[in-house]
């Protein structure tokens, strides 16, 4: 199935090396990460050496080579958010989920990332939960959010 989707991404872009970033962005949107097999196909179809595909995929932060969780939690650790206590949020994640920023929980539900600034310093500390910006976060509100994100899966399991 993944192969069919890759075909639709590559449609009209074959043998055009300059479309590499666009193809990778679409692939990232669709799969949530860049699978190794897909990168090999992309390299072959676009006529770009595989090492160049990897170079681009490693260079941009928008691409991830490891599978990511269903819930992507991004914590802003920029100057303003740091002053307003974003390090407490990072510690909350460490304590509650037992993972470091940049890692995914073993059940594949939550990925936690840190970024340096998201341009909403007045509302800090900011946490982005699947492209939704949450302002004025505290360890308490983050705990509830993480519980909810992890809890959804439990309910689904029970049902």
């Amino acid at each position: 199935m993944a192969k069919i989707n890759l075909d639709s991404i590559l449609e009209g872009r074959r043998s055009q090396p300059h479309m590499l970033v666009e193809v990778l962005l679409d692939l990232q949107d669709q799969e949530g990460y860049l699978p190794e097999e897909a990168l090999k196909t992309v390299s072959k179809e676009l006529g770009v050496p595989l090492i160049d595909v990897y170079r681009v995929a490693h260079f941009y932060k928008a691409f991830s080579l490891k599978p990511r969780g269903k819930n992507v939690i991004t914590i802003c650790t920029g100057t303003a958010c740091h002053v307003r206590g974003s390090d407490l949020l990072v510690n909350q994640v460490r304590g509650q989920l037992g993972i470091e920023p940049g890692e995914t929980t073993p059940d594949g539900q939550i990925t936690v990332e840190c970024v340096n600034c998201v341009g909403a310093c007045a509302l800090g500390p900011i946490v982005i939960h699947n492209d939704v910006y949450c302002k004025n976060m505290t360890p308490g509100t983050l705990r509830r959010k993480l519980d909810k994100a992890a809890g959804k899966k439990k309910e689904a399991k029970d049902a």
Binding site: P49, I51, D52, R55, H58
Partner: peptide
Amino acid sequence: CKERAQANALGFIGR
């Protein structure tokens, strides 16, 4: 590797 051997086996990774 890229120009003389045309193998493209090596490259810069990361930034």
